[in-house]
Design a protein around this nucleic acid. Structure first.
Lengths: 215, 215
DNA sequence: GCGTAGTAGATTGTCGACAGTCTGCAGATT
DNA sequence: AATCTGCAGACTGTCGACAATCTACTACGC
């Protein structure tokens, strides 16, 4: 991870708050008062403020001057933005990852797919989402492009929030996720497969079709 | 601008420090001590820390825990990263801008080109760089995609730093910049010109060829 | 002389308190 | 009754001081 390497208290606050948002204990739109957070987490306001700035950069929190921070409320429009930008970023990531792939990386990716299969069987939906994002995370790391990775982290947790909040129909998500990621690995093994861009369009963009009505 | 709307002191510090970095008064690699900055700018460390976090997000500053912040040092590798990511972002931006273009926006863009011509004649190199970035800035705004715009701002000032630091050969930059931007406007007027992606590859990617040896 | 432990200085991380700003309600005015 | 004004409370923005950490120099041992 990225934020784990940050300084102690603010980094810990980031991880704690992010988990609470992703798991729904902090609902979308909920006010995030600095003082209440500082008393709850047992630290002063300084690391809390820094944590909120970081979460704002990750798109999980929105804040206005003198009006405080709130958990982001993601709309269908936001999901469209996330999908279109993600497609652009992933195309670049995969193109570069193809040129830098190692056998060990493929082994890791296949291990994730194996975990996915288990998660599907045992119906662990949250775990499945984490594996999905972890899979793509490794591709972005493989791409060896620090700014591309930064751009990815700026939308990663918003995508996670959308998937975890069940605002996407997950019925077929279960059924196709293993197969689609396996196809992506095949594409990467071919190295210069020109069809990978179309594959990404389908893989990421298919979320449009799975976009359900607002919960 | 974006940061002008931020709260007073930290936002002002961001703008002040960014200008000093872009104009070279703060050289690349220079240490940025919080206390010395706070005494220099006449504010306490709190807004300075916030400003440094913001500048780190913009890629103009790098910082390590307990080791402090420094002005970023951009290498040729960094320029390659900036160019490849920027091409991805601009392709998405132009595709969307084409669908949303208004006559007023075209007027604004042509006004910028007119200013460019004047800047070229009067040999105002820094002004020319600003106009170049302002041109693209407006396209990203036209794209009406908040996360794409955020991704753009995360690399925008690094691109500016590269161009302003004269680490790119600017001889032909002067000669072709007006013509290339005029071509981009023509492409946007055609709305669904499929050749615009290639145009962007050339326009942004040509920086590779202009990349000079390290100063 | 060279390497290493210790220490002093400087710098960042954190804290609690004060100042500036927003929000909602109470009361006055028309 | 409706609207405006002023106030009270809560919250964010800022500040100065203390704690934790890093760094570079010094002194010691070999």
């Amino acid at each position: 991870m990225d934020t784990l390497s940050r300084a102690g208290l603010s980094g810990a606050a980031v991880n704690e708050l992010r988990e609470e948002i992703l798991e729904g204990r902090l609902t979308q739109g909920e006010r995030l008062s600095e003082v209440s957070l500082s008393t709850t987490l047992g630290v002063s306001r300084a690391p809390i403020r820094e944590a909120l700035l970081h979460l704002e950069q990750e798109g999980l929190v929105v804040s206005l001057p003198y009006k405080g921070a709130s958990v982001v409320t993601l709309s269908q429009q936001d999901f469209l933005e996330l999908s279109t930008l993600r497609i652009s970023l992933e195309k670049l990531a995969w193109a570069r990852a193809m040129e830098r792939v190692t056998p060990e990386a493929i082994t890791d990716l296949n291990a994730i797919i194996a975990d996915m299969q288990f998660a599907v069987k045992s119906d662990q939906k949250a775990k499945l989402v984490r594996l999905d994002l972890d899979f793509h995370e490794r591709v972005f790391i493989m791409a060896d492009h620090s700014r591309l990775y930064t751009a990815w982290t700026a939308i990663k947790w918003q995508v996670a929030l959308f998937l975890l909040a069940r605002r996407v129909k997950v019925d077929d998500y279960h059924n196709i996720i293993v197969e689609e990621h396996a196809e992506l690995i095949e594409a990467i093994l071919k190295r210069h497969d020109p069809a990978f861009e179309q594959l990404i369009d389908v893989h990421i963009g298919s979320g449009y079709g799975r976009l359900s009505t607002i919960v």
